[in-house]
Design a protein around this nucleic acid. Sequence first.
DNA 1: TCTTATTTTTAGCCAAGACTAAAACCCTAA
DNA 2: TTAGGGTTTTAGTCTTGGCTAAAAATAAGA
Lengths: 220, 220
Amino acid sequence: MVLTTAEENYLKAIYHLSDGGTKSVSTNDVAAEMKTKPASVSDMLRKLGDKEVIEYRKYYGVNITEEGKKRALTTIRKHRLWEVFLVDKLHFAWDEVHEVAEELEHIQSPLLIQRLDEFLNYPKFDPHGDPIPDEFGDVKARPRLALNEMEIDSSGQIVAVKDSSAAFLKYLDKVGAYIGARIKILDKVEFDGSMEILVDQKKTLFMSKDVAANILAIQS
Amino acid sequence: MVLTTAEENYLKAIYHLSDGGTKSVSTNDVAAEMKTKPASVSDMLRKLGDKEVIEYRKYYGVNITEEGKKRALTTIRKHRLWEVFLVDKLHFAWDEVHEVAEELEHIQSPLLIQRLDEFLNYPKFDPHGDPIPDEFGDVKARPRLALNEMEIDSSGQIVAVKDSSAAFLKYLDKVGAYIGARIKILDKVEFDGSMEILVDQKKTLFMSKDVAANILAIQS
DNA sequence: TCTTATTTTTAGCCAAGACTAAAACCCTAA
DNA sequence: TTAGGGTTTTAGTCTTGGCTAAAAATAAGA
């Protein structure tokens, strides 16, 4: 069963909105994600239902099937491998690659992806720190570390905070250390555990050990 | 002015059929090349005419414009650069790359092509021996050599014959040394100038100096 | 439970790019 | 110069993936 580019994009959106297939997803949510109108989504859901990559009950949203999950993971795998290629080999900045990878992910050639994976030396994570599913759809979870547990010179991406009080989030926002920010540990002060951190390859930030211990990152 | 993938493919076909824009091309010829019906071609020619990449006079075929030539050469450049990538970096065989490059050539990102060119070290010819236009559309012609002028171990592609008598072409056909064949010089006998040649990476051929002198190739 | 608000679907329309069938055009040979 | 044959265009249809407007179904509040 062949999926069109549009169908692949819808399926990927549904996969993400459903948290990897664990929740059902509404028509409106898909429309928002795809930047289309709900009426267009209804049509597409019927098609995807016919192709059995989602389970579609009118008025009750959709659930992704096992087959659909497999397809979505393949697309995600291709997207992330191309991102690694663009950053590692063609020296794109990590925030310039998404649009192009969005096009490249639809190239139809299993051999191409297999060879690309080999060429890139089987990377496990993309430049944003997201895991690359293997050819069977299995992903390697990456452990989260508090910033104060990271080594000097190591890089990663902020994925969560332990203390999610408004005050703390406001502070993070103010200093520019949002969820998703790319970071690098520049220095750690032995005396008090405070740290110097590079955010998004441009901004340097100082923070106390207490603050650092509240920020979780994945290492890349 | 943006061209769709279909429009790019038609334009490329017209460019090739017109010998690089030197001849006008008929609707029927385009239909044959694109494997579509003449009726579909008429429609598309009107569109391409509106976009001023061809000059279209009903019932009198088309001529490609300067702008159209530029666009076609950009697409050809992208196609051939991707072919080099697939063969040199991903170890595809030279005859496995066309379909995939046909998809890759439509990725829209000038930066991507610039970086790819750099990554591949500015190749001048693709794996089939065809020249890669530079970013201004200029192509480097490659001199033709008679096979007996080629060095041992050098590779290339047969592009023409000096003696194009039916008898000689029949002979070539029989031994499998058609125009376009990929060849490699395996050995040259000093004594009589006869040669051993690998055709299409699989078939070994022996030929006299006289025969070799009649076959022209480009080196790769 | 009934009414209203929200969500979702249906119906009808559009553009791109294919098709078939039929009409229009061009050219050549008698 | 006209008839026929081949080529090309037009007209009308199909599918995909959008859209709007209106109808239908669900959900929520009194």
